[in-house]
Design a protein around this nucleic acid. Structure first.
Length: 601
DNA sequence: CTAATTGCAA
């Protein structure tokens, strides 16, 4: 089962980097300010009353505060310590939080259920499930019981690692202790099902929740499943669940609506998106920066950048500040229509407005320059990214690699492929696919085959996309027989050749002078429930054009047009060229007219 | 003082 794509570690980690601040300068500012803040942090702690929970905004503050708390006599209550750990965990300083917790014991500070749950969560976040479980012993030692939160946290940890059996065991143990699952427990389990793409199990849990009698489904569990269905473009099912929650008087919120709007947008149902938008506003649920960003992104993907700009204007008018994601979407919109100057302007605007530029921002720009064949500019941006302390991820590198390949700079692509591992990025199947394709298209058959062997050894999940590249590559190298052999062996590998596979094979056969066999394959496509598309027709027609078989060309063009496909510019040019020279067939002139007409559409 | 829901790049 496919695991759904989540935000990469790096794009998240580095999104807070501030552009244009030299390292030395920033540490000097930091150092100078530390004298004042250190004193005030401690003063704050020593205030006897301490009505407000201590607030820390960074790791350094937390360490200073915690150490001063450990030295106080009598020490502050466990609640104070736990508050600091909690805030550190929220800042994702999990290891630091664990280290501080370890200093509590020797100082005689006894943890409570909150403290231990936070530390358990920290271990879970670090994938240290063994250490996480070992803390259950600590509960016994201090004479307290883990609660539903503790168990939920542990279960989540196991589920994220796909260790379902252990999660289930914990669920049993929790029930044994008379601890009943609540909304959040179910919410966690449901989210886990959704992340694995198992919507059925998610809905089953929702039904279990209704029957349990201990808790009732709420807006969050409904939103979780609705979002998951929308991501799988099962919008009709999502809308059914949506009606269901309304009928149960569970009020949808901005997140529910945003998920639905995203779902219909992905299907290109703009009218439906607008209906939902109006509906939510009529219920006094107002679109937020997420909602607007989806609208901006959808318009951009449809090439409507001007409209996207006006949505950005609208959100500013409504007092919602576009953020990095909004601007990244807009930038990608300009990249998609090839307006790189405007894309760069948005990039500069982000910096000007104080929005952080992140790995996405650079990746989008790099991808844009690559598409426009401005590979040197792409490479320059890639370099700039490093200078700003951002680490390109697999996608960034793959984009640039693709750019190099398409410009014939295969060595640069290979170099980058090797280098990405140096900055901690493992090439994935797409990275391999890009390089493999590049090697074949640049006549590096041997190197391509070596790479393919490596892919097999790495136990990558080689799908039909990879085999399409391989078959096409063999054809390019003039190894049509090998390509055909491989094509025939696909089903034995459990792979189903798709339209693209067939089209690639047809092109290979045509280029190898085997047009008759190519036509036979075209006919077989119908039988295999894989009907040819416009690309297939254009390919085989070009094949017959090269053999100057006018009759076949005319027949196939007619067939293609009957099916509602049309000749592309290249094929049309060749057809017109052939027919105009073929004086024996003046009767074919109407066909030329038809073709030119369809081309002008 | 602890645990669950939404957006961008190949």
């Amino acid at each position: 089962m496919m695991v759904r794509k989540t935000a990469s570690f790096y794009s998240y980690c580095y999104c807070n980097n501030i552009r244009g601040m030299p390292c030395l300068q920033s540490s000097l500012v930091f150092f100078a300010s530390s004298f004042h803040s250190q004193a005030s942090i401690i003063r704050n702690t020593q205030t006897k009353t301490m009505r407000h929970p201590p607030h820390v905004t960074n790791l350094r503050e937390a360490l200073i505060l915690f150490n001063s708390m450990l030295r106080m006599r009598p020490p502050p209550s466990i609640v104070r310590f736990t508050q600091v750990l909690s805030q550190l965990a929220k800042l994702e300083h999990y290891s630091a939080a664990i280290n501080l917790y370890k200093q509590m014991g020797p100082s005689g500070i006894v943890p409570d259920v909150y403290t231990l749950s936070i530390v358990i969560n920290c271990f879970c976040q670090l994938n240290e499930m063994g250490l996480s479980l070992s803390l259950l012993g600590k509960f016994v030692k201090v004479g307290i019981q883990p609660d539903v939160t503790t168990f939920t946290t542990l279960m989540k940890g196991f589920l994220l690692l796909n260790r379902v059996a252990e999660a289930a065991e914990l669920f049993g143990k929790m029930m044994e202790q008379g601890c009943m699952p609540n909304e959040i427990t179910f919410g966690t389990l449901i989210k886990s099902c959704c992340m694995k793409g198992n919507n059925r199990a998610a809905v089953q849990l929702l039904r279990k929740m209704e029957q349990s009698g201990h808790c009732k489904p709420n807006v969050i569990v409904y939103s979780t499943i609705i979002d998951s269905l929308c991501k799988d473009t099962l919008v009709a099912n999502a809308l059914n669940l949506f009606s269901e929650m309304i009928s149960k008087d569970i009020a949808p919120n901005v997140i529910t609506y945003t998920s639905l709007i995203h779902g219909v947008c992905k299907l290109g149902q703009w009218t439906e998106a607008m209906r939902l938008l109006n509906e939510m506003v009529s219920k006094n649920i107002f679109p937020n920066v997420f909602t607007f960003s989806i609208l901006v992104d959808t318009l951009c993907k449809e090439g409507k950048v001007v409209e996207a700009e006006s949505v950005v204007e609208l959100m500013i008018q409504r007092g919602i500040k576009p953020d990095t994601v909004t601007y990244n979407s807009l930038m990608d919109g300009y990249c998609l229509v090839g307006e790189m100057e405007k894309a760069k302007k948005v990039f500069d605007l982000m910096i000007h407005k104080g929005s952080n530029v992140n790995v996405y921002s650079y990746s989008i720009l790099i991808n844009g320059y690559c598409r426009r064949k401005q590979i040197d500019e792409a490479n320059r941006v890639f370099q700039e990214m490093f200078d700003e302390g951002l680490v390109p991820n697999t996608i960034t590198c793959t984009s640039l690699m693709d750019g190099f390949c398409k410009e014939g700079r295969i060595q640069d692509a290979q170099k980058l492929f090797s280098k990405m591992q140096a900055f901690g990025q493992l090439p994935n199947i797409q990275s391999y696919a890009v390089l493999l394709d590049g090697l074949f298209k640049n006549q590096q058959l041997t190197k391509a085959l070596v790479l393919f062997r490596e892919m097999e050894c790495r136990k990558l999940n080689l799908d039909i996309v990879i085999y399409n590249i391989l078959i096409e590559g063999l054809c390019i190298a003039g190894k049509v027989e090998s390509a055909r052999d491989l094509f025939c062996r696909l089903s034995s590998k459990g792979l189903q050749p798709n339209v693209r596979t067939h089209t690639i094979m047809i092109k290979g056969l045509c280029d190898g002078g085997l047009v008759t066999e190519a036509e036979k394959l075209l006919r077989e496509m119908e039988e295999r429930d894989c009907p040819p598309n416009d690309c297939t027709y254009n390919t085989i027609i070009r094949g017959f054009l090269y053999t100057k078989d006018t009759l076949k060309v005319v027949g196939l063009v007619q067939e293609m047009m009957d099916r509602g496909f049309s000749a592309d510019a290249w094929t049309t040019e060749l057809i017109v060229d052939l027919l105009s020279k073929d004086e024996a067939n003046p009767a074919l002139l109407p066909l030329i007219e038809k073709l030119i007409f369809s081309l002008s559409q």
